[in-house]
Simulated assay, not measured.
Amino acid sequence: MSKKHILLINDIAGYGKVATAAMLPILSYLGHPVYNLPTALVSNTLDYGKFNILETTDYIKGVFPVWKELGFSFDAIATGFIASERQAKLVADYCREQAERGTTIFVDPIMGDEGKLYNGVTPATINSMREMISVADLTFPNYTEACYLTDSTFNEAGVSNERAKALLNGLRSIGTKSALITSILIDGTPSVAGYNHKTDSYFTLPYTEIPFHFPGTGDIFSAILIGHLLDDDLLVPSTQKAMDGVYKLIDLNKDNEDKNRGIPLEKYLEVL
């Protein structure tokens, strides 16, 4: 089977296995040719509390005309951290053009967790991510991000199954075809909630939580999920494989001394 080519549009951290540095080795290991376009250069994972960041919007603005002139195209594009509204417009317009030619668009609207926005993420980012979701075939925010995107109230105690469906419908109204909500407590159980536009069906996949935090686990989830979808696996089993992969990697690394640098993926690719 011919493997599909994917472009990662995400940030690059100098210190830590997150974003592009987490997704590229997984997708490559799964056999897909991977290309990348950095949205920002970040000194280290934000979990350390101090960081330096360089936005690359002007660079991106110069890249797209060159790629168009050279005739470059991709089977899929996966977007992650978007540094500004201006950058979001550039990237969304490019994704829209590519989607019209048959490219599949995956959007991970990276903004926050546990009811709060991440360090350095501003309210303007929410509008940027809505712009990205408007061109998506599949988006997969966590519960916090889904609440921000749909102007919904975050509830630490979680939601009912009906409320989860309402959040998914809110994401669909922004423009995405299919949607997942990760890290959401549904009727007291940690779960991933989803809507599959190909089957017009909702689903819920429960999981067991390991009480350790690593940056980059969302990127690992994205990469495993996308890798299987690019092999034409169905959405529900691909989501389950991504959940299982993240669980295994956290379990294998739960005793690591410095969790802020993320999971050292190269040691553990074979478990995927």
Rank of each mutant, 00 (worst) to 15 (best):
S134G: 15
P109G: 08
R163G: 00
Q98P: 00
F214Y: 12
N155G: 01
E209F: 08
T176R: 03
P190K: 04
D187M: 02
T182E: 03
P109T: 11
P206S: 11
N196R: 03
A157D: 12
L171P: 10
V107G: 05
K177I: 00
V192S: 03
L185P: 00
R130H: 11
R130E: 11
S178F: 02
K165V: 12
D113C: 13
S160H: 01
G120S: 09
Y94T: 12
T204S: 13
I184F: 07
T153Q: 11
F212C: 10
N161Y: 06
E156T: 04
T217V: 04
A157N: 13
K116E: 10
S201D: 15
F74R: 07
L168P: 01
T122G: 03
D108H: 06
P215R: 12
I77H: 06
Y143S: 13
E100Y: 04
M111A: 04
I105C: 07
E162G: 01
G216P: 01
V192P: 04
P141G: 07
H197G: 00
I210G: 11
L168D: 05
R172E: 05
G175S: 06
N161Q: 08
N196K: 00
S128H: 04
V121H: 00
D151P: 00
F212W: 07
D75H: 14
Y118G: 14
A136K: 10
G102S: 03
I110P: 06
A136F: 07
D187H: 04
K198P: 00
C95H: 12
K89Y: 10
T144A: 10
A76D: 05
E131G: 01
H213N: 14
V91Y: 09
T176V: 06
I110W: 04
N127Y: 10
P123Y: 12
A166N: 03
R101N: 15
E114A: 10
I110Q: 01
G71E: 09
S201T: 15
Y143T: 07
G120K: 06
G158R: 03
Y143W: 11
F81V: 02
T79A: 10
F203T: 06
F81C: 09
L117R: 08
F203R: 11
G71Q: 12
I184Q: 09
G115H: 12
E85M: 14
A157C: 00
A179C: 08
R172Y: 01
L168W: 09
L138E: 05
Y94L: 13
Y94M: 14
I77S: 07
Q98M: 15
A136M: 09
T144I: 08
G102H: 05
G175W: 04
A88D: 10
L168I: 09
D75P: 13
C95D: 12
C147L: 03
V135N: 11
